[in-house]
Design a protein around this nucleic acid. Structure first.
Ligand SMILES: [Mn+2]
Ligand SMILES: [Mn+2]
Ligand SMILES: [Zn+2]
Ligand SMILES: [Zn+2]
Lengths: 161, 161
DNA sequence: AAGCTATTGAGAATAGGTCTCAAGTGCAAG
DNA sequence: CTTGCACTTGAGACCTATTCTCAATAGCTT
């Protein structure tokens, strides 16, 4: 993902802050710089650690305060992968219709996008009288097919590495 | 939903317990009788309360121990509606492909089913080398359309009731 | 430069969910 | 119908992700 796009997301968030009359503090900058320079799904704790790498003064409280702003702005998506902590997806800004398929054996996550599904979601929402704001599709399965092809990251495929 | 179907779900769960060599205790019976006699999505705390209505001896610990068994059996689905506690869906046994659309203003939830989406999910999963085990689609939006029709349960529609 | 507020860090507090362990109970064998 | 024991249970301690409190700090507007 080009730096420009990430820079763009950062700018959008700054605009969001401005619109809500929120201040652009050094801590917030460290946090959003961190968020928009990763492709990975991350946890609040990871974001804290990474942000502190940029600015030692970032506290856990501020990270937890900023995360809701990021999701409210629509640039980051909150995810539930069944763990006892949440994950956040920084790719939402660029790919608001991407979804996830998770291997229940090895926790591997593959992202995918489907225009057809997106279109069906719009139709259904409209039919039910809702205006759609966001969507989240998660498929759980296991990657045995890939395992057979020798391309799987299934735990049992790594036992002898 | 016919009593027979619910009875069927209960029997399936008993079979599941038997297969895993788990005992059919009075507490577990109270809990599953409760689960399979409701249509609503419920929380662990609600399940505890309702189950105690049937059997005073049911404890919180046993409810929390039984819930994973219910989801593992595939008869109940765990849901995340963005609250800080989980919801459980007892309609999963009968409608494994149903999904949800949630109004972000009034928390109203509407269920829907789409064969087309289910088929696309299968295709995508297969293409990505996964065998699909479960799926979960949630659409977030707001029911302003219904509001205009006077059929919405939007909070602002009830301010003067 | 000053003033008004929003914001912050540290740590206490909250709360959903999990774990421990002694006492109790399905249930299969005899 | 007993017996024996592994599986279960209830109570409450415990855990941990997330939220809250509050005095000190720092954007931003004038
Ligand atoms: Mn993603
Ligand atoms: Mn449902
Ligand atoms: Zn795998
Ligand atoms: Zn509404």
């Amino acid at each position: 993902m080009p730096v420009t796009e990430k820079q763009n997301a950062k700018q959008k968030f700054m605009d969001f802050l401005a619109k809500k009359q929120l201040r652009i503090t050094s801590q917030r900058q460290a946090i959003i710089d961190t968020v928009f320079s990763t492709e990975e799904h991350f946890t609040a704790e990871q974001l804290l650690e990474w942000s502190r790498h940029r600015d030692k003064s970032v506290s856990r409280a501020t990270v937890y305060r900023t995360l809701p702003l990021l999701t409210e702005s629509g640039l980051v998506r909150e995810m539930d992968f069944g763990k006892d902590y949440k994950f956040y997806d920084p790719n939402y800004a660029e790919h608001p219709n991407h979804n996830h398929i998770i291997c229940q054996d090895c926790d591997k996550i593959v992202e995918f996008e489907s225009e057809k599904i997106a279109k069906l979601e719009d139709e259904i929402s409209h039919k039910l009288g809702f205006s759609i704001k966001a969507q989240r599709l998660q498929i759980t399965g296991n990657c045995e097919e890939l395992k057979k092809l020798g391309a799987c990251r299934h735990k049992s495929c790594h036992e002898h590495e």
